[in-house]
């Protein structure tokens, strides 16, 4: 089982703990990752499709050459990729991009590259029974709020295109439970984390952090788990400022998806680099340490 691994900018920048956790977990699961190191940022919604579609077509073409599907560990990367790949299924559009942008480099995208977030990979390719068998430390007693954010869920016709993958709407809750942890459901689990408007409207952005993290904290969660490092950046990195804005303490650790899997697979909290988070993960560390 092998993937062209697309970690995305944030996992290589502001959230290095995500990158290392994903690599460690993949290795433990015997998922082979070949990192794509010569491809561009997806555009992350900060570029017009006119710019981002050609560079993403290039990435897909490279994976096609490698003969591998792409695995992402960032919902935003996944969302932008899925939407671009959806448009690139139009043969005429694809040929135009091949001709105008890729031909010069000797590349051509045929439209066959599959792009999957690690969360999908675990359920749809790897197999959840196989994962279960490898759990060394069920996270019994750990109270976790799943937080999808936007891009793994919507637009629905692209992210959850068929009934066959309808279960995608519940992967995060399912996984949390499979790992032995307890779900703490929050109303905004598929809502926006606020990151995209940090520039245009910081107050509203922080308001979303306070709303989601605050609700989870009030419901007694030990932490939140998210498949998106941008959600993490805002919910974790800006949590102190969100607290400042509302005047209410939240103090909720935000865990990356591979970190949670890693803890259940037996890695310790240092190996998963929980110490790199802005909000102290002490409560999580203590509970996990008790389990070993």
């Amino acid at each position: 089982m092998k993937y062209a691994f697309y970690p995305g900018c944030v996992a290589k920048g502001g959230c290095p703990e995500l990158y290392s956790a994903a690599c460690k977990v993949a290795e433990k699961l015997d998922i082979e990752l070949e990192e794509m190191s010569d491809v561009a940022c997806t555009g992350a919604g900060c570029m017009p499709t006119q710019l981002s579609d050609p560079i993403n077509a290039r990435t897909f073409a490279k994976a096609e050459q490698m003969g591998l599907p792409i695995m992402t560990i960032c919902s935003t990367c996944q969302g932008v990729f899925s939407q671009a790949n959806h448009r690139l299924q139009d043969a005429e559009y694809r040929e135009e991009i091949n001709r105008e942008y890729l031909a010069e480099e000797g590349l051509s995208y045929q439209g066959t590259t599959e792009v999957k977030h690690m969360l999908w990979v675990l359920f749809e390719d790897y197999g959840i029974e196989k994962l279960k068998a490898l759990i060394e430390r069920p996270l019994n007693g750990l109270r976790v709020s799943p937080f999808y954010g936007c891009f793994l869920r919507r637009p629905g016709n692209i992210m959850v295109p068929t009934k066959d993958v309808g279960a995608r709407r519940g992967y995060l809750e399912d996984l949390t439970q499979i790992l032995g942890a307890e779900n703490v459901d929050i109303s905004g689990k598929t809502k926006c984390c606020g990151f995209p408007i940090l520039t245009a409207n910081e107050e509203a952005s922080l308001g979303m952090v306070a709303k989601h993290a605050g609700e989870s904290s009030q419901k007694g969660a030990d932490c939140m788990v998210t498949p998106c490092p941008l959600c993490h950046l805002n919910l974790d990195g800006n949590q102190p400022r969100a607290e400042g804005q509302t005047g209410e303490k939240i103090d909720l650790p935000i865990i990356h998806l591979p970190q949670l899997v890693g803890l259940a697979l037996g890695f310790n909290t240092d190996e998963m680099q929980l110490g790199r988070h802005i909000v102290s993960t002490k409560a999580v560390n203590d509970k996990v340490d008790m389990l070993t």
Binding site: C150, R154, P155, G156, P196, I197, T199, A200, N201, M208
Partner: peptide
């Protein structure tokens, strides 16, 4: 304008 285009988080909730 402020509170307009760029204040949208493009979460795609409205599409459905």
């Amino acid at each position: 304008q402020p509170q307009g285009l760029w204040d949208c988080v493009h979460c795609y909730e409205a599409d459905g």
